[in-house]
């Protein structure tokens, strides 16, 4: 059978739906430890307690780019952070280089404040476009870091080489930095320059690891199932010519 994009998407969708209901109450089901998320949780907590400000950098572009999904993962993180830290002395601030993403970040924060019943404390400038191009966005975030008004940065979204401006400045200021990007070059430099890197597809696990809801956990489990389907497909695709050649 020829496995096409329709089959793949259909299978993913079916798994997402089924795993939203099946097996989610199994007490033995868990996810492996990822240290970056542990550190992130600490940073979120501390921003509540010590009045330090957490900067969530959502990336250079997002909504209509090839990495819109990473931007959505960043928004999930923002949502979870806002749920916890919106009421702190220095509420989390979201920065991005994509105005459409800025609007979504503002919506996310606005609704978090509503949920916490403090809508009057919401201000639209908590979600900012620090620049409208990748490097100017990074420059804006860099300026915020150099000004010393930010104590921790979580870079979750589409980041490429310009992210090094943010992550290396974080190191300079002693601010905690965590980074995850679907851009593999961006990932490589975040690996070398942040305190806690998120590798590969870990950036998409943000929601599941911060308990954003069963759909996030179901999608991670669906991802695992598909992973082995693909591994099988790779083995078959690679192995068949070999078998044909040898036999």
């Amino acid at each position: 059978m020829n496995f096409s994009a329709e089959h793949l998407i259909g299978l993913a969708l079916a798994l997402l739906i089924i795993l939203s209901f099946v097996g989610r109450d199994n007490p033995r089901r868990a996810f492996r430890s990822i240290k970056a998320f542990k550190e992130l949780r600490r940073s979120i907590e501390l921003s509540v307690e010590d009045g330090s400000q957490l900067q969530i950098s959502l990336g250079r572009d997002g909504v209509l780019g090839p990495h819109s999904a990473a931007a959505f993962a960043g928004l999930t993180l923002l949502n979870q952070v806002a749920n916890t830290a919106a009421d702190s002395d220095q509420p989390p601030i979201a920065t991005t280089g994509d105005p459409a993403l800025m609007l979504m970040a503002q919506d996310t924060l606005r609704h978090a404040y509503q949920r916490l019943e403090i809508p009057e404390h919401y201000h639209p400038l908590l979600g900012q476009a620090t620049g409208l191009t990748p490097f100017s966005y990074a420059s804006g975030s860099l300026a915020q870091l150099l000004d010393g008004s930010v104590s921790a940065s979580a870079l979750v979204g589409h980041h490429a080489e310009e992210a090094a401006l943010i992550s290396t400045a974080s190191g300079t200021r002693g601010a905690f930095s965590l980074g995850g990007s679907p851009d593999l070059s961006g990932q490589a430099l975040l690996f070398a320059s942040t305190d806690e890197p998120l590798l590969g597809e870990e950036v998409y696990a943000t929601g599941a690891y911060l308990d954003a809801g069963p759909a996030h956990q179901a999608s991670l489990r669906a991802q695992d199932v598909l992973r082995w389907v693909i591994i099988l497909a790779v083995l078959i695709t690679a192995g068949l010519p070999l078998l044909e050649g040898l036999l």
């Binding site: 998407i9 990495h67 990473a70 959505f72 597809e201 999608s219």
Partner: peptide, 12 residues
């Protein structure tokens, strides 16, 4: 792997 993450996140 990144494409898998994209696929599922997009579907959500």
């Amino acid at each position: 792997g990144v494409a898998l993450g994209t696929l599922l996140t997009g579907l959500r």
